[in-house]
Design a protein around this nucleic acid. Structure first.
Lengths: 143, 143
DNA sequence: AGATTAAAAGACTTTTTTATCCTTTTTATG
DNA sequence: CATAAAAAGGATAAAAAAGTCTTTTAATCT
């Protein structure tokens, strides 16, 4: 449903939401330990997000990754779509072709409504929503 | 959340539920096309389930896979646990160690209740529940 | 301008998942 | 008892996902 990569990416973005802005950019080197994601891999994921305009970055000295105010209004689904692709998220619980709400398989009826709700959460929750009232990264990533 | 293998296995078991009993056993050869799963792979999965006592099988002429009445009372979770292992299903949405209902990360609060419901469906739905009132495999696996 | 710093890009490796093939064992039945 | 049918098991291959490394490009600061 959600790949590890997507989870990693979300963690990274949440870190940026809590710690960065236009004139306080963040190096991958300073994130990866906190969110428990391999450095080079996290770099790749953030680059991918940046390339798709979900987060921001600049190169060179004093550069790094950061979120501007538009970035903060991105939803979790925006991230997931870039990392996992649209197909994966929308695919039938049972992986059945041509199975959707109109032509549902039996499992779909059982599990489908949960999945739909899950997707709706991803679509309706922005980064900003998530960090509201939080200032400690530990609240997101205990242990 | 659910591997392809688990989905395959569930499909196979549903086919058995609709078409087999103690004295009408089924060959993998006769299932795989209907449920759109590679023959040898489906065989492997059903063998695994049989080995764990989730479904039944006998070798030799007139042998094959089948469900007895106990098998029919198995839940979807029984299948998933054998194929994916317990860990995968119960792992935190965010893959965070030591994150659970008692010590939840922020994503957990958002998405966690959906996931919990999903797990509860898997745990509470038996094969028998699923096929109730159905007699056509196409209703499960359209297309 | 030159050196340095940091992301961007891409090639490469490893691991996991999915899938296939071939041999062995079991069992029903003629 | 021989034979054929079927699952069981083991070994291997292919594909996808996860992870690493190296080079290139861009920004900044002497």
């Amino acid at each position: 449903m959600l790949s590890n990569s997507s989870k990693y990416a979300i963690k990274g973005v949440l870190y940026l939401a809590l710690n960065s802005d236009e004139d306080h950019k963040i190096l991958v080197r300073d994130i990866y330990k906190v969110v428990h994601v391999p450095e080079a891999y996290l770099a790749k994921l953030l680059q991918e997000l940046s390339r798709h305009g979900i987060i921001s970055s600049t190169r060179g000295p004093r550069g790094g990754f950061y979120l501007n105010s538009d970035d903060r209004r991105r939803t979790l689904m925006d991230i997931v779509k870039v990392i996992d692709g649209e197909k994966r998220v929308n695919s039938c619980v049972m992986g059945i072709r041509n199975c959707d709400m109109n032509n549902p398989c039996v499992l779909h009826k059982l599990v489908g409504s949960n999945k739909t709700k899950f997707i709706r959460v991803l679509e309706n929750t922005t980064i900003l929503d998530l960090i509201e009232g939080k200032q400690d990264i530990e609240e997101f990533f205990p242990n």
